[in-house]
């Protein structure tokens, strides 16, 4: 069921519905991400950004609508989860490195266990992806020996080692102070420059403006306004105007 003709979007959501009990969190969300595109999901706290992102990797099951990711029909109950998750990399706000494993082991685990990669080859790969995030010297360190920013970069490297077709980032810098934020954002910028397809939930408006090909502004479970990064400087809806006006837009 893999369809990778270049015209197909890598990720597409159509009229996605999701409720938690009586709370309607996604109320007909639609957007698509083309190959090589960087999409930034922005919006106020509770507007459904994380939920939308998690639906893409099926950490949440949708109630209605259609989600297609790299040819996988994610909304269907029979979706091959492990195949989907080999195509999608996800990085969380809280890093979630495995504390009992070294950085190298964190990175080589999935390629070895899931793809059956040989250990020696996986180790080379670990060096390569760590170099990509500027952490070669931390190969044999344990997560708790790293700063927050380094842990987050290691988590990105761990995801990259699975060679995903699209990366999802959920507020990956929210737990970091400005200096550490900058080092993580630099890594993401480089990924974008290398052509990685990405969907990122972010509160860093300046960053979104600089890196995103498209902005999706969510409000009350709906895509309230969408367009190129320029909508951040000239929003059309009062809600986005207010959102970017309340000090969110800083460079």
């Amino acid at each position: 069921m893999q369809q990778n003709s270049s015209s197909e979007p890598i990720v597409s959501l159509r009229n996605v519905q999701k409720s938690f009990g009586p709370l309607r969190v996604l109320d007909g969300v639609s957007f698509a991400v083309e190959r090589g595109e960087v999409l930034a999901l922005i919006g106020r706290s509770g507007s459904g950004k994380s939920t939308a992102l998690r639906c893409i990797d099926r950490f949440e099951k949708v109630d209605g609508g259609e989600i297609v990711v790299c040819g996988h029909r994610v909304d269907r109950p029979d979706v091959d989860l492990r195949a989907l998750r080999q195509d999608v990399g996800i990085v969380f706000q809280s890093y979630n490195l495995f504390p009992h494993l070294t950085i190298e082991q964190n990175i080589t685990l999935a390629p070895c266990a899931v793809k059956g990669m040989a250990t020696a080859q996986a180790r080379d790969l670990a060096r390569k992806v760590l170099a990509q995030v500027g952490l070669e010297e931390k190969l044999h360190a344990y997560p708790e020996q790293l700063s927050g920013g380094q842990q987050q970069r290691a988590a990105i490297a761990r995801s990259l080692a699975m060679q995903p077709k699209v990366m999802l980032f959920d507020e990956v810098t929210s737990a970091l102070d400005p200096e550490l934020t900058a080092e993580v954002l630099k890594v993401i910028e480089q990924l974008a420059a290398d052509g990685m397809t990405m969907v990122m939930v972010t509160h860093e408006m300046g960053f979104a403006k600089g890196i995103a090909d498209r902005i999706v502004f969510m409000h009350r479970g709906k895509v309230h306004e969408t367009g190129p990064a320029s909508i951040l400087t000239s929003p059309t809806t009062p809600e986005l105007t207010q959102f970017v006006g309340t000090g969110n837009l800083k460079s």
Binding site: F59, R85, F92, F98, L109, A110, A113, V114, R158, S159
Partner: peptide, 27 residues
């Protein structure tokens, strides 16, 4: 074991059994 550990492992396409074995058991 924090829920996030298991989600991270699921996100890396590890199977249920692999998650128990590699991620949950020893910690």
């Amino acid at each position: 074991i924090p829920r996030g550990q298991i989600e991270a492992a699921e996100g890396l396409a590890l199977s249920r059994l692999q998650i128990y074995w590699h991620i949950i058991l020893l910690p």
